[in-house]
Write a protein that binds this DNA or RNA. Structure first.
Length: 300
DNA sequence: CACTTGACCTGTCCGC
DNA sequence: TGCGGACAGGTCAAGT
């Protein structure tokens, strides 16, 4: 899915687009896509207004005036796309000059077969929850109960918070002494928000082989990794996140971080630091991209 | 306990 | 162009 920078980008987009809108109706393909009772939906969703949009780790929260919150995890292929059908740019796509297809834009074709939930606002704009692989979930619950979700109780600190120190970073990683550094980076209970892309990118930045065991890493290496994790994720947010395959922001647009990626999905290309050929290996049963020259194992 | 491996799904790409 | 298998941004439950 979307990792921290992608979810943050969606959050910022939705914040601009849907705050104070009032929900008119909701439709979904089946009960599994929206597991709340119809009475809860009637009472706490329909008619309520959007008061805030928040993110914690890779989880999005849309707060409602009913004191309920829509909690959403996009997992691998989830999308939250806002469409304002009153805009001529969307409704006028049947008017064409010249040949070719009318449009490639995602928003012009929604809903599509990946659409699982459609929220319609009073002004007839829509928020679509699309999810090709159906791993994602959306759930309505009292705002005060959100912190009690198992995931929220377990999840580690936000790495981009200003008060998140390198000391805390190093301390957290001691929880996983005998696992590989890649596995520890992906563990959301250690720190929040790192996924496969930014794990590979930050390990390359710190010149650490992803198979290195946690307890073999020096403080200097972990300090470097701390800086790289924050650098890579902040940079990606600036670029609107990464579109590897499915990810789009709240307006249906792709992120451009992949244009700047150093190793991720760049196997066979050259390392931007030493010009060696980037290879793809498997670590923690995930596809993993490294420069075998910069990231030696063991490399102390 | 700490750690690893399937399972959840659909779609796409690659090799035969 | 058909078919099988591997693989894809994540997280749990169940296994060792």
């Amino acid at each position: 899915m979307p990792e921290l920078p992608e979810v943050e980008t969606v959050k910022r987009g939705l914040h601009k687009l849907i705050i104070s809108k009032q929900i008119k109706s909701v439709t979904f393909d089946n009960q599994k896509s929206f597991p709340n009772s119809s009475s809860d939906i009637e009472e706490f969703l329909i008619g309520s207004k959007i008061t805030n949009v928040r993110r914690r780790a890779k989880v999005l929260m849309i707060d409602l005036s009913s004191k309920y919150t829509l909690v959403i995890h996009l997992k691998m292929t989830g999308q939250l796309v806002f469409v304002n059908y009153s805009k001529p740019s969307v409704t006028a796509n049947s008017v064409r000059f010249g040949g070719g297809h009318p449009t490639d834009s995602l928003v012009d074709n929604l809903p599509d077969k990946s659409t699982r939930v459609t929220i319609t606002f009073k002004d007839d704009s829509h928020l679509f929850f699309n999810d090709q692989r159906k791993f994602g979930w959306i759930r309505l619950m009292p705002t005060l109960e959100v912190p009690n979700i198992d995931f929220m109780k377990r999840v580690g600190p936000e790495p981009l918070e200003v008060d998140f120190t390198p000391e805390e970073f190093i301390e957290r990683f001691k929880r996983r002494p005998n696992t590989t550094i890649k596995s520890a980076l992906l563990d959301q209970s250690v720190i929040a928000g790192v996924g496969n892309i930014y794990a590979d990118e930050s390990l390359w930045g710190a010149s650490i082989h992803p198979k290195r065991l946690m307890n073999s890493l020096t403080r200097t290496e972990l300090n470097k990794l701390y800086k790289e994790v924050r650098y890579v994720m902040n940079f990606s947010i600036e670029k609107g996140g990464s579109t590897n395959r499915n990810y789009v922001n709240a307006e249906g647009k792709k992120g451009s971080y992949m244009d700047f990626a150093r190793v991720f999905r760049r196997e066979g290309l050259n390392c931007p630091r030493c010009n060696s050929e980037i290879i793809k290996i498997k670590v923690a049963s995930r596809g993993t991209h490294i420069c075998p020259n910069c990231q030696k194992y063991p490399n102390i």
